[in-house]
C-alpha cells in the first residue's frame, strides 16, 4: 500500500483536534484534501474533493455528523466514512453506522490505530471496535424483539452472531479466525455483512417513510 496516497478529509468542529489529526495523517503519508467544521460544509466539500475516506466527528456543535454521513455516503458511493468520535456518544454512533458509515474508532485510539483504521477503511473493510460490535449486536436483538414496524427486519446468521460477540469481547479478526477455524477474509466478510444488512434496512425504512408521508412527490 505504498503507491498512491490515500485521500482523506477530516470533519471536526474543534480546530486543535482537526489540525492535529490532519497533521498526524499527512506526516504518515496520507493526502489530506480538506477539513470541515460542520455538517453542511462537510457534505459540500466532500462532493467537490471526493476523498477516499472521511474522518467524521459526530458532535459538530449545532449540526450532526450523522446527517453529514448520510449525505456523503448517498451522494458519493465510492467514499467511505470512518466515524472518529467520543466513546460515550454511543447511540449517535449506531445511527451513523446505520446511515452508512463503514466503521468507528474512539478518539482515545492511538495514532497507529488511527492510521491502520484509515487504511482498512480505504480498502473497503469495516472498522469495528468492541463497543460498536456490542451496539450492532444489541440493535439486531432489539429489532428481533420488537418485530420492528411490521417490516421484515434483518437477522444475523448464527455465525455472524458468533463473530460479532467475539469482536465485542475484544478479539482481533486474526484471533477470531483461529478460534472458529475459518479464514481471516471470512471473518471480515461476516462483519461487513452485518453492517450492510443494517444499512440496507435503514435505507428501505427511510424510503418507506418518505413514500408514506408523500415526501417522494415533487411539490407542485
Amino acid at each position: 500500500m505504498t503507491d498512491p496516497p490515500i485521500s482523506v478529509m477530516v470533519v471536526d468542529d474543534h480546530p486543535i483536534w482537526r489540525g492535529g489529526v490532519a497533521r498526524d495523517l499527512t506526516e504518515r503519508g496520507f493526502d489530506v484534501l480538506a477539513t470541515a467544521s460542520d455538517a453542511d460544509a462537510a457534505a459540500r466539500i466532500a462532493r467537490t474533493v471526493r476523498p477516499a475516506v472521511v474522518l467524521m466527528d459526530l458532535n459538530l456543535g449545532s449540526s450532526s455528523g450523522v446527517d453529514a454521513t448520510r449525505e456523503i455516503t448517498t451522494a458519493l458511493p465510492e467514499t467511505r466514512v470512518l466515524v472518529l468520535s467520543a466513546s460515550g456518544e454511543h447511540s449517535d454512533v449506531l445511527e451513523a453506522v446505520k446511515a452508512g458509515a463503514s466503521g468507528y474508532l474512539v478518539k482515545s485510539a492511538s495514532v497507529e490505530e488511527l492510521v491502520a483504521a484509515v487504511r482498512q477503511t480505504a480498502a473497503g473493510d469495516a472498522v469495528f471496535t468492541a463497543g460498536l460490535a456490542g451496539l450492532v449486536l444489541g440493535e439486531y436483538r432489539r429489532m428481533a424483539a420488537s418485530g420492528d414496524s411490521g417490516q421484515e427486519a434483518p437477522q444475523l446468521t448464527e455465525r455472524e452472531t458468533e463473530v460479532l460477540r467475539l469482536v465485542a469481547k475484544g478479539l482481533t479478526a486474526r484471533q477470531i479466525a483461529r478460534r472458529l477455524v475459518i479464514s481471516h477474509r471470512t471473518v471480515e466478510n461476516h462483519v461487513q455483512s452485518t453492517l450492510r444488512k443494517l444499512q440496507l434496512h435503514n435505507r428501505v425504512e427511510l424510503t418507506r417513510y418518505a413514500i408514506e408521508h408523500g415526501l417522494d412527490r415533487d411539490p407542485d
Partner: peptide, 8 residues
Amino acid sequence: VAVSVPAT
C-alpha cells in the same frame, strides 16, 4: 477496559 452495551 472497553465496555460494550446495547444502545437501548
